[in-house]
Design a protein around this nucleic acid. Structure first.
Lengths: 225, 225
DNA sequence: TTAATTTTGTGATACATGTCACAATTAATT
DNA sequence: AATTAATTGTGACATGTATCACAAAATTAA
């Protein structure tokens, strides 16, 4: 299915810099695909021939580490996926998997390159997006290695609350094993910390639904533990 | 001191795409500064007004984590430093410090932007460099969190041997505390693993000089431990 | 609804690595 | 050369978290 980018209301900040003519070009080489939870959007180790733009939905970026799977981060639309590998290695260096129903625009890489070439504002925005990502990975990595369980879980909860769902009440889109992969710990430890938080009245849990009851405590735990 | 980029023999791959006229422009807004070991090249938290290009030398990229200092990686000239923060946040998100005598070209950011704008090949090379860095951080982070001490130290030794000095005999440019920061562990643990390696005849140590005696063992330890 | 599968909770135990303490070296400075 | 400072080596001990094992829930499939 070809997308009609001109009418698209979820254009990236970069794409909004394109002229009408350029948008037209984009439309021709852009395919919109819908995915269900669990579907792979980008697969580590495969050849990357398209730029992927997550238009709607939620996805996890993960990488096969030397031992276990590591979830690098959870990304929320709208965002470009796997730009660095698309340009760099050609072979995808990590995977992206939908964790909620999602829509991805696959853009032909040659068209994308053409747009980078002819429109500086576009390419500069792309550059900025890549830079921002890199910085985020830096900080995320420092956090991941220095904090301990309670602090890391607090971070995850705060992120889901503040950045992903923008609400104190939400349904966790991954299971505890995956949270473990996200914070580099075992499933069991995640479970233990969660019950601890619940007993302390910091969160209310019912199934996958979580309500943040005491955000202040979480912030404290995040920075002290 | 102004640099004469035209005659410079250590141009970046990106800069080699510039026309003679563009190189001239670069020359005008490029200052070459020499540093000694220990000198800060880029300082986290300060305002970034220049693109920094490490022309000669060796430096550590480090970031103040929530608890301790974390050395993200060791970079070897020629390489651009801190590109993502220069474009992104304006405020440097990490520090870079010389660990050997180094030379840095500070390039005015407006000139750099101008070059990005007028020369697509140049900007594409810069884009590629940023992408490569991001991917490296990904892998590095996965390694850092999943392997244990012996494996991580083996990695550091192999990296110094294969990527930095390209020789089995070299002088470690940092102390054990810093190696600890590089692999997320304590100084004492680094020391213990090093003596263990020495006792096992894998390396020979005399002061800061290290000779790799059994690279095969190191590779094995790197992937299994 | 029942059966099968996945996810979660929790105790017992093991272990890698951090921390503290202090001695031994090595390097830098006067 | 003599002092001072920085770095390294090593033991004893504490501790956070992984791992194993299994039961309880919850979800999905038949």
């Amino acid at each position: 299915m070809n997308a009609d980018c001109k009418l698209c209301e979820i254009k990236s900040k970069a794409a909004s810099k394109l002229s009408e003519e350029e948008i037209e070009k984009l439309s021709f080489s852009c395919a919109l695909v819908k995915f269900r939870k669990g579907d792979p959007l980008v697969k580590q180790g495969t050849f990357s021939t398209n730029v992927a733009y997550l238009r709607k939905g939620l996805a996890k970026v993960h990488i096969a580490g030397p031992y276990h799977e590591q979830i690098v981060r959870i990304v929320k639309a709208p965002v470009y996926l796997a730009l660095p590998t698309t340009f760099g290695d050609k072979i995808n260096q990590y995977s992206v998997t939908a964790i909620e129903p999602s829509e991805v625009c696959f853009i032909d890489i040659d068209t994308f390159r053409y747009l980078l070439k002819v429109n500086y504002d576009f390419s500069y925005e792309i550059l900025l997006e890549i830079c921002r990502n890199e910085l985020e990975v830096f900080h995320r990595c420092a956090n991941r290695t220095q904090k301990q369980m309670r602090g890391k879980i607090a971070d995850v909860l705060l992120e889901l609350c503040d950045r992903i769902y923008i609400s104190d009440l939400f349904t966790v889109p991954v299971n505890q094993e995956e949270i473990g992969n996200l914070v580099d710990s075992s499933r069991e430890s995640v479970s233990r910390v969660m019950t601890e938080f619940e007993n302390d009245g910091i969160i209310r849990v019912s199934g996958k639904k979580i309500e943040i009851l005491n955000k202040k405590s979480l912030l404290l735990i995040s920075s002290n533990g």
